[in-house]
Design a protein around this nucleic acid. Structure first.
Lengths: 147, 147
DNA sequence: GTATGATAGTTTGATGTCAAACTAATTATG
DNA sequence: CATAATTAGTTTGACATCAAACTATCATAC
């Protein structure tokens, strides 16, 4: 292949990874909107989803969970506060810490998340055998470990 | 696994794809900076790389190549113009079209691109056998096709 | 041949994102 | 104990990105 392009060619694994990630994100946002959860990005979804199982997280913990800079988390959480989905409150003992928790309205989103993520997984793994899924995971873990 | 998180868990394929993409991007930007090409994002690199083999592209063609909105391409190309790496000129026949070409300074980047992309591929596929690479590609193509 | 529609790019406004500088509070060190 | 260093979050400035509105040009239709 003389015209091989390691950044962008459609056929190589690296650009496929970019494209798939893009499509997954778009799919999630669309499905959420379809179920009435509008105007939030996948990062907001990641935060809400984390809070469903963890109940209470500090800003730094959220940052670590979703792999976004702490200043980004400030902006994301503040938007969720504006949307009435989460609450922020400072720790009484050590006032540096800010705890984020779901509001009632935030908790109501649980079924939506369940439905969206199962729809996404179904689409993602359509026609991919269990064995292929396992192989894929193994290879991706190795590649992830390479960096 | 009771705490399975389809958006963010470290161990599932979907979040691995996000992480790997992130790491690949970071790696490319860092390697470029190491070789003196500073202040440009991967999207700028994609444009420059495309222009190395295509000589002349319209804004719309660039948009299609790098899968970014045309208004994004306007901003990206204008930055490359400011950096002195590309030139824009309107088609004489049909003045709606804008052709983008590399300047001399832009063309000088070719060896940097070659070096960076080969370094990236080497890192990406370290300890991944040829067979695994083929399997990975097959599965990713299927998943990409699922959306 | 003028009006309608399509096409190529740009502009504008909003948003997610990061890095660096900053504030406030706690901990460690001499 | 007082000063220095660390830690948690926020603010600020820059930038990539998109969608929608807009401009300018070309093509089509009647």
């Amino acid at each position: 292949m003389s015209n091989y392009n390691p950044f962008m060619e459609t056929r190589d694994a690296i650009s496929l990874i970019s494209k798939i990630r893009e499509k997954v994100n778009r799919f999630i946002v669309q499905e959420m909107a379809k179920q009435g959860v509008d105007g939030i990005a996948t990062s907001h979804g990641d935060i809400l989803y984390a809070l469903l199982s963890k109940h209470r997280l500090t800003m730094a913990e959220i940052s670590a969970h979703i792999h976004k800079d702490k200043s980004t988390v400030t902006a994301l959480v503040d938007k969720l506060v504006r949307l009435g989905l989460v609450m922020k409150e400072r720790d009484q003992e050590d006032t540096r810490y800010v705890y984020v928790t779901l509001t009632g309205k935030g908790k109501e989103l649980e079924p939506v998340f369940e439905s969206v993520s199962s729809a996404m997984l179904k689409q993602f793994y359509r026609d991919i055998t269990e064995e292929e899924q396992a192989i894929l995971l193994t290879i991706l873990l190795k590649i992830n470990h390479n960096f």
